[in-house]
C-alpha cells in the first residue's frame, strides 16, 4: 500500500491477553495506513477486536507487538493528538455542556476566555446552541453524543477515533447523526477512524472500509467506497455494495 500524506500508520499490530493459563490472541498482524482527511470504517464480527484496536490507537491499552504512528510520532499512551468518541457518551454528569466540551482545554491549561471561544465554536458546529448550560441528564441520547463529538474535536486532534458512537441510539436518531457527522467531517476536514458492526452505517459513511476477520482479528479485506455523498441507501449500487460486504462477513461467521 502506497499512500501519500499518511497521518495514521499501524504496522504489524498484535495484541494478546492473558487468560486462565494461556494467552488469547485478540489481534494479529494488523497493518493500516490512513490518509489525512480520510474517513475509514472498521467493520467486523463481534469479538473480532475492533474496539480493542481503537483503544490501542487511543493509547488506553498497550499493544503486544508492532507500532502505531501519528504523523512521524510513535504513540506510547493516551494523548490529545487523538480524540475519542465513546458509545456510551462518557459525559461528566457534574459538568454542563460547555464545561464538558472545555474539559481537554482545561487539562491543557488554556485560559478561560480562550476556552469559552473554542467551546462556543464547537457548540455551534454540532448544533447545540442554547444548550450550553444544560447538564447531560437533561439531554437526549443524540444530543449527548453531539457533546461527545464536540468535546473530542475541541482538542483539535489529528485523528478522531469513534467507537460505535451511534450504537446506543435509536434507528432514526442514528441516521440523523450519521448525516450530521458527515457534515461535521466536511467542515473540519478531520481524519476519522470509525468502528461499527453495521455494514449499512459503514457503507453510508466511509471512504474506505476495513473488514476484519473473527478472532484473532486481522484485516480480511479493504473496500474503497467511491459512491458520491450524500449516499442514497435505496440506490442499487449502495444495496449491491452492502450485500457484497455482508456476504463477506457472513462467510466468516459460518466458518467456511
Amino acid at each position: 500500500m502506497d499512500r501519500n500524506d499518511v497521518i495514521l500508520s499501524i504496522k504489524g499490530l498484535g495484541k494478546s491477553f492473558p487468560k486462565d493459563n494461556g494467552q488469547i490472541v485478540a489481534i494479529e498482524n494488523f497493518d493500516l495506513e490512513v490518509e489525512n482527511g480520510e474517513f475509514v470504517c472498521i467493520l467486523g464480527p463481534s469479538g473480532c477486536g475492533k474496539t480493542t484496536l481503537l483503544r490501542i490507537v487511543a493509547g488506553l491499552e498497550q499493544l503486544t507487538s508492532g507500532s502505531i504512528k501519528i504523523g512521524q510520532k510513535e504513540i506510547t499512551g493516551p494523548g490529545s493528538d487523538r480524540g475519542m468518541v465513546f458509545q456510551e457518551f462518557g459525559l461528566f454528569p457534574w459538568r454542563n455542556v460547555k464545561k464538558n466540551i472545555e474539559f481537554g482545554l482545561e487539562i491543557k491549561g488554556v485560559p478561560a476566555e480562550k476556552r469559552a471561544e473554542t467551546s462556543q465554536r464547537y457548540v455551534d458546529l454540532v448544533g447545540l446552541k442554547d444548550f450550553e448550560m444544560s447538564h447531560p441528564k437533561q439531554l437526549s441520547g443524540g444530543m449527548k453524543q453531539r457533546v461527545g463529538i464536540a468535546r473530542a474535536l475541541a482538542n483539535d486532534p489529528a485523528v478522531l477515533l469513534m467507537d460505535e458512537p451511534f450504537g446506543a441510539l435509536d434507528a432514526q436518531t442514528r441516521n440523523q447523526m450519521q448525516m450530521e457527522l458527515l457534515r461535521i467531517w466536511k467542515e473540519t476536514k478531520k481524519t476519522v477512524l470509525f468502528v461499527t458492526h453495521s455494514v449499512d452505517e459503514a457503507v453510508f459513511l466511509a471512504d474506505r472500509i476495513v473488514v476484519m476477520t473473527a478472532r484473532p482479528g486481522s484485516i480480511k479485506d479493504l473496500w474503497d467506497i467511491d459512491l458520491p455523498r450524500t449516499r442514497d441507501r435505496a440506490s442499487s449500487k449502495f444495496i449491491a455494495l452492502r450485500r457484497d460486504i455482508l456476504d463477506e462477513l457472513e462467510v466468516q461467521k459460518t466458518g467456511t
Binding site: 480524540g83 462518557g90 461528566f92 474539559f103 491543557k108
Partner: peptide, 27 residues
C-alpha cells in the same frame, strides 16, 4: 467512579493527578 469517565479524561490528555482532581473527586 465510572471507568469510562477515567478513559475519557485520559484520551483528553489528563495526567494521573488530573484524573484524580477532575474525575475521581467530583464523582
Amino acid at each position: 467512579v465510572d471507568p469510562l469517565l477515567i478513559d475519557v479524561a485520559r484520551t483528553q490528555g489528563a495526567s494521573n493527578k488530573q484524573v484524580f482532581t477532575k474525575v475521581v473527586l467530583p464523582s
